[in-house]
Structure formats: C-alpha cells, structure tokens
Design a protein around this nucleic acid. Sequence first.
RNA 1: GCGCGCGUGGUGGAAUGGCAGACACGCCAGACUUAGGAUCUGGUGCCGAAAGGCGUGGAGGUUCAAGUCCUCUCGUGCGCACCA
Length: 934
Amino acid sequence: MASSRRQYPFHLIEPKWQQTWDAQQAFRAFNPGEEIPASHPFAIRHGADSMSREKVAGRKAPAKYYILDMFPYPSGTGLHVGHPEGYTATDILARYRRAGGFNVLHPMGWDSFGLPAEQYAVKTGQHPRVTTEANITNFTRQIKSLGFSYDWSRELATTDVEYFKWTQWIFLKLYNSYFDAEKNCARPISELIENRKSQIYNESAESLRAFVDSKRLAYVSEAPVNWCPELGTVLANEEVIDGKSEVGGFPVIRKPMRQWMLRITAYAEKLLADLDTIDWSDSLKEMQRNWIGRSEGAEVDFLVAGSGEIIRVFTTRPDTLFGATYMVLSPEHKLVAEITAPEQMQAVEDYKRFAAGKSDLERTELAKEKTGVFTGAYAINPVNGEKIQIWIADYVLASYGTGAIMAVPAHDTRDFEFAKKFNLPILQVVQPNDAKTDWQNFTDDGTAVNSGFITGLPTPEAKTKITLWLEEKNLGKKTINYKLRDWLFSRQRYWGEPFPIIWKKDAAGNLYHEALPESALPLLPPTLEDYKPTPGGEPPLARAKDWLNLPDGSVRETNTMPQWAGSCWYYLRYTDAKNAQSFVGKDAENYWMASPDSRPRTPDPKSTPGVDLYVGGTEHAVLHLLYARFWHKVLFDLGHVSTPEPFYKLVNQGLILGEDGQKMSKSRGNVVNPDDVLAEYGADAFRLYEMFMGPLQDTKPWNTRGVEGVYRFLGRVWRLFVDEKSETAFEQAETTSDLGSRRSESAEDHAFTSAAAELLDLILLDGGIADMDATPAQLKALHACIKKVTEDLDGLRFNTAISAMMVFVNEAMTWQSKPLSVLKPFLQLLAPFAPHLAEELWARLHSTFGQMAPSLPYAPWPKFDPSLLFESEIEIPVQVNGKFRDVIKVAVDADNATIEVLAKASEKAQPFLAGKTIKKVIIVPKKMVNLIVA
RNA sequence: GCGCGCGUGGUGGAAUGGCAGACACGCCAGACUUAGGAUCUGGUGCCGAAAGGCGUGGAGGUUCAAGUCCUCUCGUGCGCACCA
C-alpha cells in the first residue's frame, strides 16, 4: 500500500465514473436500424435517428470507426502489464474518434478455448467451462478497472455455444466449397458436382465422392503429421518450433495420421498479393511473405536410365540445367524403391530408416553435415543426354516442390557441400560478372557458360530461353512453388469445437465422411468424467460412447478444431454479436466492415476499410493473422462478407520488459501486476504511463519510477483545478470515514460510490478559475497543445502527445487566473488518456459555474486555430560556416536583406567573422541563416 | 547463412536535412516544513575557471548544413532457416 500521500483521490473518482459509464451504457455502439435512446449521449450528439437504415444507406449516418484489440486467452494468472498496453492505445483512439464524431466500434471478448483449462481438467476433473468462466470473470474485473470504453454489450467468448455454433457453420462452408482455379475463387461444392455429372455419365457414387472429397477446402488427409506425445495431440507446422511444441517445448515426432486439413494453399497467391493493399508494418508483411514463400522456377522431367520412370524436379535455376551433375531424391520419394539397383538396396533401406528415425529437431541440428547414399540408378539430363547418378539424401525435403532435385554443385551451396563430401563432379555453367569472383559455389546471377544454346546469356534471359525450350520439347514448364502448406486443422482434444461431421461405411465397407446439416448446429461436446485421451490413444471425445455412436450406425468425428478457429472470425461477430439467425447480419457487417470514410489510406486509397485499426502482439504475425485472412477471403468469395481483407491497418505493440530489462517471467520474479500498480497510482496514471514509456511499437522496460512521474503530472493537473484548503478539509473528512483505506471492489459497489461522491463534493475549485477572456499567451499555450495532441494521436505518437500536455500544465501552473475557455478544451485533450480525472474535473467545472455538463466522451474534439499560434517576431539561428553561433530576433516577414544585416551584426558571431571575408550567405526563410567565410 | 528493425546523456526517450537531448526519471542545490520518500524554485550531455572545444556505435561520402540521406563496418534485437 502507498506510504505516501495520494496525489489526488483517484480511488474515489475512478469507481464513480466507471459506474456512471456503465449505467448510461455510454460506449454502446449502435448498428444500422437500431433505435437509439434519446437520452444516450450518442443520440444527443448525432440525433436519435442517426443510425436509421435510410441514413446509413444514404451515407448520412456518422462514419464508422472499428478499432479492435486482439482478444486475450483468459489465463488463470490474470492480466499482466503487456495486455493493457495495446488496450490503452486503442481506448485512447476510440475515445478520440468518438469525440471526432465517429460511430466507434470498440469491443472486447475472449479467446477461451485452449489447452491450460483442459490440462487442469485432466488433473482435477473440473470441467474446462468452469475454469474458463472463473478466469473470464477475473479478466473482466481487471480490464474494467482500467476504465476502457468497450461496448460490453457485444462481449463474446469463443466457447459460447451461440458463438461456436457459427464457427462450426463456417467449417461447413469450407467443407462444402472448393477452389475454382479458373474463376480464382471459392465456389459451392454443388457447382462442382453439377459440372462433374455433366461431364461423366453414370459415375459411381463412390467414385464421385472420392473426386468431390479431394477438392473440398476442408478435406481429410492421411499424411504424416506433427504428433506431440506429451500434449497428446497433433500440431500445425506453425506450432512447431525447432522440432518442439510451441506450447510447452515438448518433443514432436512425425507420424502418419488421418487428419482434417484446410486448403489454405489455394489462397497462397491472393494472401500474398493482397498484402499490398493493407497498411501493415513492412516487417510483418515480410514475415507473411516469407511464410507463404513464393518462388518462381520450372519443373523439369528427367528420364531414369533403363526404365520408363520419370523424375520431376523443381528448380528456380533452370539456366543451370547443363551443370546438373547428379540428382537427389528425398528418402521418402515414392520412386526410391523402384529405381534402386539391387546392390544398393541394403544401403538405401538403411539410410531411409536412419532418416525416418531422426526427429525434426535432429534434422535441423545435424544440418551442418550432409548425408546420403547412391541408389545405383542413373538419370538422363534432358538438355545434353548425360548420364548422371541418382542419390537419396535428407537435405531434400519430401514436402517441398516435387521432393526431388537436380543438383548443380557449382552454383548451389547445399549441392556444393554434398558433391565435395561424396566426390561428385562439379561443372561450371555460370560465370560471375566480376572476373575476380570464384565460380565455385557462386549462386548469384551471372552469364551462362558451357551451356549449349544458352551460353553467353545473362541469367534472367537464360532462364526464360531454356524454360521456353523445355516447354516446346514437353520436358518441363514454368512453375510457381510455395512453402506454405495446407493447414492441419484437427486436434485430439476435448476443449475445442467438435467437427459437425459423421463417418459412415459404404457398401464395400470403406469409411467415408458426411457433414451434418446446418440445422443440427450447434453440435455440443459430450459431458465427460475423464478428459484424458482413451487408453487406445483416441481423442477424449471417443470416451463418450452414447455421443459417439449414432442410431444408424454412423460415428461422430472425435477430433476438435484448433484454438485458431474461434479467432478467425470473432471480429466479424462483434459487428452483430447477438444475431441468432446468421453468423452476422448483412447490414451490420456491411456498415462496420465496408463503409468507407474520408481518411486517407496509404498503400491503396481504394483499399477496403475492414477493421480500421487492429492492435496486438507480433506473436500472431503468421498464425492468427494468416488464418483469419484466409477464412475471410473464403467468406468473401462465397458472398458472406463485403471485403477481401479483414484488417486494414495493423499495429504490433512492443513487448514490455521487466525492470531488469529482461522478458517478464514468473521464474525471473520480475512480473509487474497491474492490480498492484492500480492500487497505488490509479488507473489513469497506469494508462498514462503505459503510453508515456515510449513509442507503442517499441520494446521497452517497465520502470515504476516512471509511473510516479506521470502520477505527479496528474497530481499537478488536479492542483491546477482545485482549491488546496478545501482539499485539506476533504482529507480530514475522509480519514473519519472508512473510504480512505478501502478501494471499491467493483463498479457495482454503489454504497461506496455514493459515499465517495459525497466526500468529493467537499472539494472546491481553485479561486483563480473564472469565466473570463483568455490572454493571447494562454490561448497560444492551449492551441499549441491542441495541435500537437491531435497530430500525435493521428500518428499514434502517444508519448509525445502526453509530453505536450505536460508542457501545457507546467505553464498553466504559473497562471494567476485560469479562464474556463482554456481549461475546458484542455480537459477534452486529457480525457482519452486519463478519462476518470478528466470527467471529474469536467463535471466540477460545469457545476461550479451552474452549467450543464455535456457528455465528455461525446463532446466535439477541440480544433486548433493557427492564427492564435502566429508569431510576429521569431528567433532564427545564425551559423558561421555551418556552426551555430547566435540567435537573432527578426520579424516573421523580414526580407533576406534584413536578416543578412542582422546576422552579420549578431554579437556572438563577431569573433568568427573578424578579419574574414563573407563569401556566401545562405538564408532559409524563417529557418536559419548561414554565413560562409573564407 | 538470409531477411527486417534498432544503436542519441546516468535512465526511458524527443528532434518536416536547419539551435541535438523536448518531456519524464534520477541526481545536485535551495524554499516551505516538526519531518520529507509531499510540494515548489533553480541546475543537470562531456571537457573547461571562462572563452570555447567535443559530442547521436565506428570509418568514409553527399550537402552551405547530417542523429536524419548514401557506402562500408561493428554491435544488438526479431523473424526465417537444407524451401532447390
């Protein structure tokens, strides 16, 4: 507890205003067609009918501003100081936009499916829902105590039945769609079936099903997956870091399993191209581009000598084809067994076992040393008919390209290392343009040599020419490859959305899947006693036999969806959170996601609005943000949403480190708990400090001393407004009550707040405050502050905006008389940052002067008047030979001749001018003057 | 290895190519005070008594003028990593 005196009674002020905002639903956002209570401050500013359908359709309704935080996973440990950093930034902007006349959508919710609650359930048997709800309650209390202006009427949790019903519904859309390569978009599966039926007459049901199932955006695959024994589930590639699980750091092994996949690769090109239309940081876009990993090249067919087999390779350097001196297949390549010579069979089998036994981690760690064996088979190089050896090696990945390569050791580092180790021939086919550079292991562009018909061509032309040649001879073709893999979408867990899928057997006894109808949604998970996987290794859902087995003999899918599913579309649900008929209403979605406003959009002025600003951590750079974009694009193709991109502008808030400059962690003991900071300094100081620390995007260390600094600033604001003597009286009265020692536990603590209000009434305004004309100096201080704060808010420069307010207050503290007309706009500037204190002083200011206080959050944002900042006389620096020497005062409109005369006469410049000739004078009007002497 | 970002006082950080260090922390001195870990006033990049000199990781360059632009280099953080 604070041992020093409070700077101001934030402990009474903050609960009071939080309760007021709650009571009047001050931050509720209104949808098109929604009736607005006449007493609501939004109605008072914009009119009760301002959101009528007619006005929205006619673009007469207030412009929308959708500002979103990445919703948190409600963990058992509660909020840490990193969470509120982004939340504070978005709250300040939400309040600023509200004051600017926008209809602001600023919601909050919970990404509440997830592993920790399930692991707790496995240990204790407590249903994850119970754990989750308790955690949500705690998070809600913490978030509300910070005074954020969320529209809580739109709160959602991904674990809500009414929410995941629609997550399942979207899954059905994916299941029942395919990607039409010609139209370059997703289409309903029914169209595919129609086409197929018109082309193939009398196809068997089994054959048609197999065809259709192979085209769905959600499909079943039998491929090897990342299995984590410790977590008892498979993981997506993105969730595996260096061969270990991202969560927990447990070993991950490759294991073939039947899994649900989402065909995100179909969208690789769109996901890549549309990055250019959105305003994200370059580094983030780059991460997504890297992840998608587009590379242009060619596929080339090599004939296996003495057999009819063809090995297809992918290369980005077809121009080096003449230098291909051997080939490598991945150990898993399907032709390995067929082509291997009898005498090499044993060695190849041994190597395959060796490679398969390696975990992903070992593969990465052992990457330094190349391994492989000769198959005994030869291929024919299609350009020159050379016979070259075929090897297998695990430096060639089965999962990329065709799983086979042509090796050009002269111009590829990996092939070079391999050839060196195994004494394979190295043939130069590219000449570096710089003659001094060694051609061995030269991988850049140069000029083709020893390359038949492309010899002499620069690399780019050589590529084009040889690719055309290959296409003519039907030996290969231009190809684009992506690193991006399809999204592994199933998990062997309990606490996730069940798949609305059942399994049946056809006449031949083969299993096939079928989707439940939409009317069967939501599909609830069964109640379990035990949340562990079954002894047979089946997912926990398989334990519920009566849920699992249906009367007609079919069986439910026992996998559940990954945590990412719920976060793929929550931003859409917020626009119409209570809709029971649809995942989101058309009008609401269209208004919040697609209605344009006048603010400039930087990458592309015509880019779609989407969420206007999305703030969250970098940890979601490739996972959530790529998945959500993918779902959004599918929904867009199918006509369910209005824009191709979900998030127009995205900002990653920087990490907050502990006071020791290390990442905060329990083990280091450097975790700062917001509850403690709030108890000692209040929410406003906490918010202000989080923003004052430095630029939002930067990583920066926490420093409690710094909190004290902004806390003192708020204390100065308080003392700028209140009468000191009355404050003493207030403090004495407070000591005799019990309110000094306790803090309101919740915004519903009415007894506390009404007693607090009574106490606060003892505080009077400073006698210097009056309804009087402001002096020019006062107006100038105010308008300089308005200008700076407004511009900085537009540029998300919260730290410098706060510093501008400090400058203003430091000056205002010296004023004897304080005009209302200056203090009120200042409070408006302060309000987004420190809303509780601003509200309290705003109310007091108006009541003291017998005025009705307009709602502060909806009071129009002050405009700065440039004429008030006009200076008739300015100081400009005088330089001699570029070095600063003196300052001269000149009229703002002084001509160059006058400036030159004054500069030459300036006192401190004299010693540097004495005895020298002035050769040149450079004058930048209103900026500086530079005297060049010999 | 590749890609991206960042290097400014004791600290967090400010600076459309034009007076480097706004604002804040810390520190020093003073005022008020029974007291100060409250508040207020002044000071505070480094060297120097001063005049002045030197200063934005380092080295070059462009410019009348560079923390800012260019080249190289070192350090650091993040991301990717046998992706053919």
